[in-house]
Design a binder for these strands. Structure first.
Lengths: 354, 354
DNA sequence: CTGTTAGCGCTTTCAC
DNA sequence: GTGAAAGCGCTAACAG
C-alpha cells in the first residue's frame, strides 16, 4: 500500500497539476481539459480517493446527511413500529435512493440538558431534516431550525410558529367532528381520552372538543377530558374513571394507542357495555380500518398521506426545485361504515428493550 | 438575534479569553478556572452555541456518526422487515442511547461505479460501522475498511480476509448438518435450494453440502444445487425443476426466504408429496420456529444472537474498552421437534416500493 | 491556569 | 484552461 490517506494535494502532485484542478474534477465542474480530467479521474480510481466530508462541509456550503430527529424522548412519545418502517422506506425512496446518508439522532437528551434535538442542524451535519413527532407547546428549538436556513419539515404544527414547515393532519378538526357527531346523536356528557399532554396535538384535540361543545351550547367539564400516557394500565384505569359517572354516555378515544383492548378493559371495570349504555368514536390512522368494531363511528387521521406529501416537498426544497417552508395539512374524515375485523395490536418500536 | 452563527472565537471574545480556552471547556478538559469555565458555559448556553462537526472531525480524530451500510444493493440482497426493525432497535440500544448519530447509507451505488458501500468510512463520516449483509466473494472494499482503522463489523465472513471483523453463523456447518441428516436417513440424491450466489454464505452452503457428500462417499451432481433469487416465481420453478427427477428424494431448503408457500407450489407442480416421496430439511432464523411444518428437520441459524454479540463487541471496540477486530461465529442447530404452527410470511423491507 | 501558532483537507476568490 | 493564496472552525503542540 502506498499512502494510506490521499488528499487532493497528493492527487495533484501525482497528476502534475494544482489542487484546484483536482477540486474541479472532484466536483464535476468545467474548466479542465478532458485529458487532464481523465488522468485525474484515473488516479483517483486507482488509489481509491474519497474526499474528506468534514473538510468539505467546513469550507463549502453543503452538509453531509439528511437527518431524522425525534423532538421528544421515546419514553415520552413512543413511535409505532409500523409507522417507523413506513417512514424509513419513504426516506429511502425519496432521499436514500439518490445516495444520501440518512442519519438518525434518537437520543440527544442523553448528552445532557444543553443538548437539543436539532443539534444535527446546528452542528452542520444535516443538509435537511425531518422532525418526526409532535412538538411541545413550549418548544423553542424549532424556531431556531427555521431560522437556520436548513430545509426541514416537522410532522406536526406549532401555534407559536405559524410559518413552521410541517406536514400533519388537523387534530382540532378531528376532535370537532368526533364531538359534534356524538352531540348530534343526543349525548350531553361526552368524555375524551386524549394523549400528548403538553404537546400541540393534545391542545388541538382539546380545542376541537371545546368548539363543538360551544356550538351546541353545552358546558365544558374538565373532568371529562383525560390525558393518558402509553402504558396499558394507565389507559384502562382512565377509561374506568371517566365512565364511573353514569351521566357520561359517550367517549371519544383519540389517545393514539390504536389498541382497543385497554379500552375494553376499562369499560368492563366501569360495568359499561358499548352500544348499550355508552357510545364510542375511535380514531384510526389507517383508511377504513376500524380500531374498535362496535364503535358508532371512526375518524380517520391521514397522517401517512400528509407525511408522504411533506417529505416530497422537503426533498424538492432540499434540491432547490422549490422554496420552503412546506405546509401540508390534511383533513380527517369521519366514517360510520367498515368491514368487520379487528386490527392487530400495534407494536411500539422500542417495546423490545428495557 | 445577534450573530446567527457563533464560533469558538466569538465565544472567546465575549468571554475575554482565547479560543483555546473555549475549546477546552467545550471538550470538558481541565486547565480552566472554574469561574472562567462557568462564564464560558453560560455564554454558550445563552447564544445556543454548537461546535461545527465538520471542523471537529477535520482537525481532531473523532468522526461524527455510527454508520450502517449494505454491502450489496437491496434488489440483489433484500433485507427482511423483522430483521431490520430488530437491528435498528439494537443499534439504538447500544449506540443511539448514548447520543450517537446513526447514519444509514442505503444506496451509494446510485452515485456511480466509483462510489462504494464504505464511502462513509473513507469520507471520514463514520467513527464505526456495521456492514449489514453478506459479502461478495470478490469484495475488495472490506479489506480497505479493515485497514482504515475505523472499528467495523460485518454480518458475514469472507474467505479472502480471515481477520475480517465479523459476527455470523457457520453456514457451512448448517449445510453439512442438513445434508448429513438426510444421508443418515438413507437419501442418496439430495437437492439443495440455496441463495446468495456469488456471495460468501452461498459458497459456505455449497462447501458444507460437499463435505457431507464426500464423507459418505456420495457423488456430487451440480444439477442438484440451485441458486434462487428472491422472487416467488423463481423459487417455485426451481423446486419444480429439482424435483422433476424422480431419483431426488430429499431437499434442503436454505434459500433464506423463510416462506414455505413457494416451496409447496414447486412441489405441487412436480407432483410430489412431502413426507411421502420427498423429505425436506428447512432452515429457520428463529429458535424453535418451524418454516415448514412437515419438514423432517429444521436447522436453526442463530444470526440474531450472533449479531447482538457482534454489536456489543463493536461498541466496546469503538469506545476503546477492547481491541478489534470482533470475531463471533455461532453454530447452527438441527432439531426435529417443534410445536405445530406456521410462521407469518416474512416481509421484505422494501417490498413496499416500486 | 492560559494563550499563540500552525494546520487538518477542502473550496473560494482572484489572478494569469 | 489553470494556479496561488486565503480561510472555513476547530484542536494539538508548544509556550508562557
Amino acid at each position: 500500500m502506498s499512502t494510506s490517506h490521499w488528499t487532493i494535494y497528493d492527487i495533484a502532485r501525482e497528476a502534475g497539476v494544482s489542487a484546484k484542478t483536482v477540486s474541479r474534477v472532484l466536483n464535476g465542474k468545467g474548466g479542465v481539459g478532458s485529458d487532464t480530467r481523465a488522468r485525474i479521474l484515473g488516479i483517483m480510481e486507482r488509489v481509491g480517493f474519497h474526499p474528506h466530508i468534514g473538510a468539505r462541509t467546513l469550507r463549502g456550503k453543503q452538509n453531509a446527511c439528511v437527518g431524522v430527529i425525534l423532538p421528544a424522548p421515546m419514553n415520552v412519545v413512543p413511535i409505532s413500529q409500523n409507522f417507523f418502517v413506513w417512514l424509513f422506506v419513504e426516506l429511502y425512496r425519496i432521499f436514500g435512493r439518490n445516495g444520501e446518508y440518512i442519519s438518525f439522532d434518537m437520543n440527544p437528551y442523553a448528552l445532557g440538558p444543553h443538548a437539543n434535538y436539532a443539534r444535527g442542524v446546528f452542528e452542520h451535519l444535516y443538509k435537511a431534516c425531518v422532525v418526526s413527532g409532535p412538538l411541545a407547546l413550549d418548544d423553542h428549538v424549532i424556531a431556531r431550525v427555521h431560522d437556520s436556513g436548513v430545509p426541514y419539515m416537522a410532522l406536526g404544527r406549532l401555534d407559536s410558529l405559524p410559518e413552521c414547515s410541517c406536514a400533519t393532519v388537523d387534530y382540532e378538526e378531528g376532535a370537532y367532528l368526533s364531538t359534534r357527531f356524538l352531540i348530534e346523536r343526543g349525548h350531553k356528557r361526552i368524555a375524551m381520552l386524549k394523549a400528548f399532554e403538553g404537546y400541540q396535538p393534545g391542545l388541538e384535540r382539546q380545542r376541537g372538543y371545546l368548539r363543538a361543545l360551544n356550538e351546541a351550547g353545552l358546558p365544558f367539564d374538565e373532568n371529562l377530558v383525560r390525558s393518558v400516557t402509553f402504558g396499558a394500565h394507565n389507559i384502562a384505569s382512565m377509561v374506568h374513571r371517566l365512565l364511573a359517572d353514569p351521566c357520561v354516555t359517550a367517549l371519544i378515544e383519540c389517545s393514539a394507542t390504536e389498541d382497543a383492548s385497554n379500552l375494553r378493559e376499562g369499560m368492563r371495570r366501569a360495568g359499561r357495555t358499548i352500544g348499550k349504555d355508552v357510545e364510542v368514536v375511535a380514531w384510526t390512522y389507517s383508511e377504513n380500518a376500524p380500531v374498535l368494531n362496535d364503535a358508532c363511528a371512526h375518524v380517520w387521521l391521514p397522517i401517512i398521506e400528509a407525511a408522504s406529501e411533506g417529505l416530497e416537498g422537503l426533498a424538492a426544497w432540499t434540491q432547490g426545485t422549490r422554496k420552503g417552508p412546506v405546509h401540508v395539512v390534511y383533513r380527517p374524515l369521519l366514517f360510520t361504515q367498515w368491514s368487520d375485523c379487528e386490527l392487530p395490536k400495534p407494536k411500539r418500536l422500542f417495546d423490545l428493550i428495557d
